[in-house]
Nucleic acid binder design. Structure first.
Lengths: 341, 341
DNA sequence: ATGAAAGCGCTAACAT
DNA sequence: ATGTTAGCGCTTTCAT
């Protein structure tokens, strides 16, 4: 096998044996100062530690893993990092896992089930002890993979008590219902729904089902790119509608902000001329003008719950229960009661 | 050692020997169907593959790593995921690394050098072959760590040809100079500078140095939290200034958007009453109203460049050169020429 | 308190 | 085309 140059440094990394030889002790002793320093005499210990420093010895993770059977890290698969909502989820997940002494490794899937399988494979290859997924629409190959590796796997961003995987998340149907219900209570009966691509996105689909379940409203659905630009686009379409909707329910804050900005540019007054409601509750949503009313999705709590579930699964063999977290309506300035007809 | 339950599944994972035995072949043959399937007879191969499926065998990453000396993944350390700028960088980095057959593992440091050391340690522990850092301000322990592990390490978001680490990034000083220079050319001589915490943030410090290097301007510096709220805060402070600055240069788009929204709320017309300039060029910046003029920071190219550098370092032993990427002024709507005095 | 030696699961020579 | 075998770097009995 060709010699692998892992750095500019040429002389290959020192190993246990090198240290043992240099310190004039056995490998067992060196291993002991590494793992249970108190079980070795102070003199020897200090000597060995000195040699370890001199030789710049770092234990091989692989060799450790092979012996302990543990790598102590879990993998997370998210559609994209380019959405603050996942960032916040991951931050919470990472923190909670840390309490179990578990590290987190993140991969992005671009919302593509095949990429997800590839990335999952990589994660398993490098030794992930568990997987945390987003959403519930996954390629069959993914399930085979995790089953084959007997890998604890958790789905999030979704609540589905009877699915193939334990899920921790909010009920997207309910979240969407809250959204439309609120608008209805404010007197709106002609509502435009702005949402991202439905294709392969189970969360979006669930939300739309939630919307449709509320009757007594005339809906106009706008499917656009999941981006600010998409939101702007939707705003244009909506303004051209006859009769014009009195409110816009966006299935994501990113979309809602795109809508907001475009309406502002067109000098359509919000919420006087038209109401806008978001979903997610991003950090920025509180600071838009007007401040965005939205459905808060509990992603931080979801991250913490997922972390606990995985931690207990891995450390105590506790199979997680499906866990449902409640979305919450946040009323700010972008939705108004409908006055005149 | 206590038996580790890695899943609900109880019977321990099958290994190469189990497969070999069940298939009636040697471990070498099984290893071959795994790594060079063509070198084994179709019959045997298919048989072995069948057994692999039945036994749900997945090769141990650790054992592989120990033999090949390779884990094929690199670690990246970023301050936070909660900023689109890092998300875009990471996406580009991940894609480029993939071309080298290298996976990416991300950890967040919260801009804290000590956390960075901890996270770096974890990354090395799980077998990262290289590290990609953000910024150049790092704890000494970090350098010791990477030196000890002889780990290829790259710093980004910064250009510093003579530093301890190879760097790939833009010159933050130049970026800030471009910002102020542009405002100056538009006739502004009283400028407010809005920036995040200077403490431990080398990029911000460099930018401020860039600002100060341009003379003929009266500056007012506003240090605020790095957030939309921080930007809003700064806007309030600036409006109270006597005489009022004619332009605001923000050292980040997040801050600039905070400023924009607050000014809008206060009905201060942009750019008529005051000009606002950002830095970063986030996806949203193009869609604000008015559209944000800003200094584009080439984070995507930076991600690609970093990926290539690390890939070539790892795969071909090529030590990277420091690489400098140019920021670029994007003029949109939020900055105007100063007319009346 | 320390050492010798047997593996962990795999890959890669080297044989056949 | 397939098998045998010697490790990879470490942890862990079991002796001493």
């Amino acid at each position: 096998m060709a010699e692998f140059m892992r750095a500019i440094g040429d002389k290959k990394r020192a190993n246990l044996r090198d240290v043992a030889k240099a310190a004039g002790v056995s490998v067992a002793t060196v291993s002991r100062v590494l793992n249970s320093p108190n079980s070795v005499a102070p003199n020897t210990r200090e000597n060995v530690q000195r040699v370890i420093g001199e030789l710049r010895f770092t234990p091989s993770a692989a060799a450790r893993a092979i012996n302990s059977g543990r790598t102590r890290f879990v993998g997370a698969l998210v559609p994209t990092l380019d959405n603050a909502i996942f960032a916040r989820f991951l931050a919470a997940l990472e923190n909670t896992l840390a309490e179990f002494g578990l590290a987190l490794v993140v991969s992005t899937t671009g919302e593509d089930p095949n990429t997800e399988v590839e990335k999952a494979k990589s994660l398993i290859d490098i030794g992930a002890e568990a997987l945390v997924l987003s959403g519930v629409a996954h390629a069959p190959a993914l399930f085979e993979l995790t089953k084959a590796a007997q890998l604890p796997t958790l789905a999030t961003s979704y609540f589905e008590p009877d699915g193939p995987l334990p899920t921790i998340g909010y009920d997207n149907i309910v979240a969407a219902q809250m959204s439309v219900q609120h608008l209805l209570e404010q007197g709106h009966h002609r509502i435009a729904i702005v949402h991202g691509p439905v294709h392969r996105n189970d969360r979006t689909r669930a939300r739309l089902n939630g919307v449709r379940s509320i009757s007594g409203i005339s809906y106009s659905f706008q499917e656009v790119d999941f981006s600010f630009e998409g939101g702007a686009q939707a705003a244009d379409n909506i303004l051209a509608l006859e009769p014009r909707p009195t409110a816009i329910a966006c299935m994501s804050d990113v979309l809602a902000i795109g809508v907001l900005q475009r309406l502002q540019r067109l000098e359509v007054s919000i919420p006087n001329e038209i109401s806008v409601l978001g979903m997610d509750d991003l950090p920025i949503s509180e600071h838009t003008f007007p401040a965005l009313s939205t459905i808060h999705l509990p992603v931080k709590r979801m991250g913490a719950a997922a972390g606990n579930a995985v931690g207990n699964w891995l450390e105590h063999g506790v199979f997680p229960n499906a866990e449902k977290l409640e979305p919450k309506l946040i009323t700010r300035e972008s939705v108004a009661k409908l006055r005149d007809q």
